[in-house]
Design a protein around this nucleic acid. Sequence first.
RNA 1: GCUGCUAUAGUGUAGUCCGGCCAAUCAUGUCGGCCUUUCACGCCGACGACUGGGGUUCGAAUCCCCAUAGCAGCACCA
Length: 486
Amino acid sequence: MITALSEKHEKKTGLPDLEGAEKGVVMRFAPNPSGPLHIGHARAAALNDAYVKQYGGRYILRIEDTDPKRVDPGAYATVQEDIKWLGLGITEVVTQSDRLPVYYDLCKQLIERGGAYVCTCDNEHFKELKQHKTACPCRSQPVEKSLELWQRMLDHGFKEGEASVRIRTDLNHPDPAMRDFPAFRILDYPPHPKVTAHVYPLMNFSVVADDHLLGVTHVIRGKDHIANTRRQRYIYDHFGWNVPVYRHYGRMGIEGVVLSTSQMRAGINDGTYSGWDDIRLGTLRALARRGILPEAVKNAMIAIGIGDVDISFSWDNLYAENKKLVDPTANRYFFVPAPVEARIEGATAHTAHALLHPSDAARGSRTLEFTGTVLLRRAELVPGTAMVRLKDLFNVKIAWNGDTPSFSYGGDSLADARAAKAHIIQWLPAQATVPCTLLTQEGTMSGACEPAVRSELGKVVQFERVGFVKIDAVGDDGVRAYFTHK
RNA sequence: GCUGCUAUAGUGUAGUCCGGCCAAUCAUGUCGGCCUUUCACGCCGACGACUGGGGUUCGAAUCCCCAUAGCAGCACCA
């Protein structure tokens, strides 16, 4: 009794249990190859991935390219790259356009079972009938007739829109979306970039066929598919197949970035965006460019979970996940934005040793040679300030002539600086700096950073008192960095 | 309009199935403090929610009804 009570209050960690998953799962991530993956895709990808890792099993990447209108030939590779970046435990890849014969064969079987029929009605007319729960004439034609028409579809006997295969459902179903929905259609144009075909399965058919054939046990997808799940059940029932377990998570609102593939593509074409990794976009490659780690994305998505309510995605939460990963590893450097040169009178040469990481002295330090003139951030020199301390160096006294400061050596004592409540600020030796441009979503900051930053290309470092940044490019003209987060 | 789903702090989330352990968990955020040669990290503290109204019950975040709000679908897209 006691144990039963305590079990009930045991703290759950991570995702909720999946029904029937104890013996392992087969799950899938099924993107449409129309462009690079974005944060929205990452949710489905990460959730399925986490469950496969939790229960063990197979994780199928299924490229759903049965609509040539929505296929971008370049996206096959893009999607694979994005998945590799995310680090999903994909165990196999299938592409639906490779499997058209499989779908054709199953379609024939379904017609033979009476679960589908070929409809040659005008689409508008069918819609009208459907609204009134009335069968179209094709519905009652003999199986042989449907089979014959099906063969004619495959043999180019019909043009686009002239014939389709419909699943026999329930014409009295209260939801018109359920009534005899289509399973195959003819498409004359555009040609498919990977196969020659003109009869294509609709998503509801190919998904059921593949989920069954590949042995998918659990499906986690957005609630925009709830109606599809109900439609698909008719197909399962016609075939007598077992239905997988479904979970539908709610809509996720994402603010601050562009997610629409068509909008992104248009912006790239007209030069508004620099590419698919422009940091104003919500693509995974844009996140990567900004220094967000794939683990952070996955962790954030798992924290969001599979709730069926609509939620708003929180950048704060993603940044917090990222900071947990990045803070222990990011080296620290000085970056002085909008700098001004300052000659420090009365100071002898000094060498500053600044730790690469404040909580890990073993990692070593940077060496900054002071020889008389430094770069300081103009904004930090507030008129009236009597003393500042240059971090890891020494104190500087400031005398003001109106708004014009002059600087002089103020001793090495940290205690003095504390007593004077002097701010500890960043600085750079004027003779050894690299120009640095820091790009943020709000705008660009120009300044200078330590030369050693050049060795951090591709890494996330922390510009002290500014935030974490990704070193994006290093060249003769300096360093370009993207702001990650505070 | 029709069909269906949902509603816990600024955000995300636990608890809801099987009513009492919930004056509601954890994270994030904001504010304050400690630590610190970063406004980072870490530590301490504060703030902040059961959509509203009825009902059932000794007892409701949890069950029922109504209202309200939001969302999804109603494609020869996925």
